[in-house]
Design a protein around this nucleic acid. Structure first.
Lengths: 196, 196, 196, 196
DNA sequence: AATGAATGAGGATTCATTCAT
DNA sequence: GATGAATGAATCCTCATTCAT
């Protein structure tokens, strides 16, 4: 049992429940950055620290590492879908946003195709669902006669490009991603962050 | 004939220097298996245990994790080179051996293109060297007019295929590798372990 | 992953494997004391600290709390059995050793009859086995016509006395144990530590 | 008629002071259940959750764990006293109610005789007081010539029986309690919940 | 040269307690 | 008065690494 009988020295400000939404958002941002910089095995405490919250808050929002990873992925996928839902969306455009995410943090999108995401199988299904959402978003705008329109090739191509995206700088990663798409015979539109 | 393998009481037999080579080999094999089964983050102690040696021996041969990883990679690359050096080697054939290694343990070859291999930078250069050796082995047999013959495309392609190689079973991983090569427009020869 | 890349500042003496037996014994002793003083929920780290060893050693010898508890219990029971095995052992004498253990650390013998020992069921069976050994040791010397000779009464009586044994000092606990046996109509022999 | 229980938007209805009593009662009930199911070390948050109130309310009513434990004990003891105060109360009858409480949640009554209730000493005196009230309630109906009528024997007997009461089901615990009383030469009246 | 126990820093996780709303 | 999010100390546990034998 953990009986904290000593008084905590001067407790820092507690902004109350209003901070909840702000904290969650800060945590997702921090998680994205920390995972991008130090990999998916980075200490969770680093995320809490960077988000400027206590460890407990991290655990309240994300009961385990997988949940934190999933939250970042979820956001990425949502942005891709949103781009795809735009009135004048094109295959090249959606691919551009996807590529931006790849270059920003390839490890996450790479996860979409990972076989072993920890041991819990729950996350597995979740990731598969996200993967399908990305494919749907892309396929909706894929020219019918495209060489990737066949079967699982689109998913495979995304996985391949994801992995190709390594490099010390964002620019370098973006170049690689574009080169990878080109090798697959795909022309990508302007790469840009969602919302640009 | 004198039976000289009798037990020496408490200490395990000390078979002299001959044991060193045997141990190293057992360690590399164990490392390959452990890394393949539990990922590159597996406890090093698991390698020593599977090799049937003490922790100290592991450290004698591999001062750190990177060294153990490098040793497995090194062996992989040497086998690819050996295949490429064969009298009647073909591009498809060399690619077959490479693909076998990918399917056997994609994580290793994937490393060939990783930007971050722990924090020590020494390993970085080493891995780049291995990467070049693989490319050389392949390029030597690459038809001049091949679409991958241009610049860094070959390395990129290997990276892309490496990443596509995920799956619970070896067979599944092999299938994925072949599909990935196909997407890149490459025809692969019979996939087989080196030495078959 | 826990990558300890910084050098540990000056490592304390490592007495080598010879320390293993000594450490285990020190740990059991420390565990007995810590559990007696702070209850079975005491921090495991306190045991390691009192035994003068690192946390790792504790975990090497006792993978979890239950194992540490079991080790102390085991020792208690063995001493009772040993007393019972003596040539001129009497019921009162064996009961004396048992009572000494009760007074020394009632929680442990109390465990012998506990229904809920954590959640793991493995420990459950183990404790039941120990309990039977205590009963056997006692019953061997129990006068045939004794009122406790019937069925489960002996076990129940031990459980009841165990619980009665609370109090701030050893002497107080011993008095209570004796009073409890008397209430049950049992006359107890000289109370003494095993080996006295 | 004005319907005034409509939801106030975000905040849960604030039913005014009347809720305070209701909450306290819900907390005591929840505490009894949680402590019975998970032991006295159960997380306090579990009590608040089961009572359907916020953590803050728990702390308003019970500043610490000891207070929560004491509240449940207090209620138990009050019920025993009330039974003893009945016109035609008998020793066996009062013992029956006591036994019911033992079987319901032996840990509490066991506390009546515990030496160490956390570290705070305040609780100590409180528990001793409760213990005396139980003894008084029992002794009032104890036949003068009874073997337990001497000195501390009654308190000791209660402690001994408390400890015997372990077992996975309520029925099992009740059987054990009755067997324990019998071993002590006490005949127990009908075991029943207070108020039956 | 091998063994395997010991060390102890670091990371994961849990709650008791506070406090803005 | 109630809610429940936030805090962070304390505990648990895991290895990388050393070193006596």
């Amino acid at each position: 049992m953990v009986e904290h009988s000593e008084q905590h020295g001067r407790r820092p400000a507690n902004d109350g429940p209003k901070a909840a939404a702000r904290n969650r958002s800060a945590l997702v941002t921090a998680a994205r950055e920390v995972f991008a910089e130090h990999g998916l095995e980075a200490p969770l405490s680093a995320i809490a620290r960077r988000a400027g919250v206590g460890q407990g808050v991290l655990y309240r929002h994300f009961p385990d590492r997988a949940a934190a990873v999933a939250a970042v992925l979820e956001e990425n996928v949502r942005q891709i879908e949103q781009e795809a839902a735009g009135r004048d969306a094109t295959f090249a455009g959606v691919l551009g946003v996807l590529t931006w995410h790849l270059a920003d943090s390839a490890a996450f999108i790479g996860l979409l195709h990972a076989e072993r995401v920890g041991s819990r199988s729950g996350i597995r299904a979740h990731v598969l669902g996200l993967s399908e959402r990305v494919e749907r978003a892309l396929r909706r705008h894929l020219p019918a006669e495209h060489r990737l329109s066949d079967g699982d090739d689109l998913a495979l191509a995304v996985a391949m490009v994801s992995a190709a995206v390594i490099g010390p700088t964002r620019a370098e990663r973006e170049l690689r991603a574009l080169a990878a798409w080109r090798l697959l015979g795909v022309e990508v539109g302007p790469v840009r962050a969602f919302g640009d």
